[in-house]
Simulated assay, not measured.
Amino acid sequence: MVKIPPFDVEQWMDKYETTPGVLNIAETCCSSISVDALQRLNKRQDAPPPVDFSRPMTYGAILGSAELRQNIASQYDSAGSSGEVHPDSVIVTQGAIAANHLVFYSLVGPGDHVVCVFPTYQQLYAVPESLGAEVSLWELKAEDGFVPDVKALRGLIKSNTKMIVINNPNNPTGATIPTETLKQIIEVAREKGIIVFADEVYRPLYHSLDADKIPPSALSLGYEKVVVTSSMSKAWALAGIRVGWIASQDPSIIEKVALVRDYTTISVSQIDDQVARYALSPDVRPQLIARNLELSKKNLALVDQFIQGHQEVVSWVKPTAGTTAFVQFKKNGKPVDDEKFCLDVLEKTKVMFLPGSKCFGHGKGFQGYVRIGYVQETGVLQEALEQLSAYVKENLA
């Protein structure tokens, strides 16, 4: 029997996000958009609706419709890939969480060694470990801006290292791996023939970087043994359609994933596929990402204002991308017990966020840190920060 630890982030969310009157600033998706609102973003007035309800509800295209896979592939072309990403290099899945699981289940097992950035989404190191792989955590440090240290990576590589796992932009810190660092990671992998797996679920929400500082997808750096995952949930504000994908320019990786996928998924919902292809179409995609970037910038400024107002007890590495911030709270100069802190804040203010050491530390630190998701509706964030400010003044000052 495969043994796997509780998924602490999801357990916490499931337990507390339905608290009556909750001000949820733990959510990591951009403020969700309706299909009606999505349709209003289309710059073509004569465009057909997102869903064709006259279509028979068969299984549809097994690996995802040709149009959706083309729209996904085109994102990597526009990112400046060294070679065209073909739709056949893309497999559609039921969200990024299924995509990530399929990558590990297809490519690693007993006897393999995996290096994974840390902190990150627990799935990215817990699943390979549950499959019998040895996992080394590649720790990110606040003093480095949560940018991975490639020298430290070299020290973690072993003769049986099968995969290097990165998360760009990073969850929970909101940090970006710069282009030069990405290239260095690729070179380390190329030297040993190691697979690079990049969870890029928050891409392309680079809201606080100049255009020339936005890194390309790992898929675009000329190394065939790269596999990336993403979804419609985070940067695209469509978590409810449960569409994600896997992309790789290595045909053997795509073939292995497709074979394993037969055991888990016949196809995604045809309705979901249609909404996703509509959202990523050239007529809609620019307006949708512009909406989410604008909301990210506006809301991040509010969090920054809160932190600047409480610098004696609150600190962070300001995010450059994504939807999450990793914020540390202190009392009398020492990190708070973040789990007790989160529960006390929730009880007294209805403000909900996640404890860092419990959900991301796993015995490795991050005491006093909480993860805040700040790209929900601005009014919710404003009210939550007002309540949190009053709590901090009363309890931490």
Rank of each mutant, 00 (worst) to 15 (best):
P5K: 08
V9N: 02
W12A: 03
Y16G: 08
T19E: 14
V22I: 12
N24C: 03
V35P: 00
A37S: 14
R40Y: 09
R44D: 15
Q45S: 14
P50N: 06
V51F: 09
R55W: 13
R55P: 04
P56T: 12
T58H: 12
A66L: 12
E67H: 04
Y76N: 00
D77P: 02
S81G: 13
G83F: 03
D88E: 15
S89A: 15
I91Q: 10
G95D: 13
H101I: 12
H101V: 12
L102N: 10
F104R: 11
L107Y: 07
V108S: 03
G111Q: 07
G111E: 05
H113N: 08
V114M: 09
F118C: 10
F118Y: 15
P119F: 06
Y121W: 14
L124W: 01
E129S: 14
E129K: 15
L131W: 07
G132R: 05
G132S: 01
G132T: 08
E134A: 13
E134I: 10
S136V: 02
L140D: 10
V150W: 04
M163R: 01
V165Y: 05
G174M: 00
A175C: 08
I177P: 04
T179I: 04
Q184M: 10
I186S: 07
A189R: 04
G193A: 11
V196M: 03
F197N: 01
A198H: 00
S208C: 11
L221T: 06
K225N: 14
M232G: 01
K234C: 04
A235W: 07
A239M: 12
G240H: 14
R242Y: 12
V243K: 03
S248G: 00
P251E: 06
A258F: 05
V260D: 06
T265G: 00
I266C: 06
I266W: 14
V268Q: 08
Q270L: 14
D272Y: 11
D273L: 05
D273V: 05
L280V: 02
V284D: 01
R291N: 06
N292S: 08
E294Y: 04
S296N: 10
V303R: 00
G309Y: 06
Q311F: 07
E312Y: 04
V314A: 09
S315F: 09
V317S: 13
T320L: 15
K334F: 11
E347V: 09
M352C: 06
F353S: 04
C359E: 02
C359P: 00
G361Y: 08
G363P: 02
G363M: 09
G365S: 03
G368E: 05
V370F: 01
R371W: 05
E377Y: 07
Q382L: 11
E383F: 00
L385W: 03
Q387W: 01
Q387F: 00
A390P: 03
N395K: 13
N395A: 06
L396I: 12
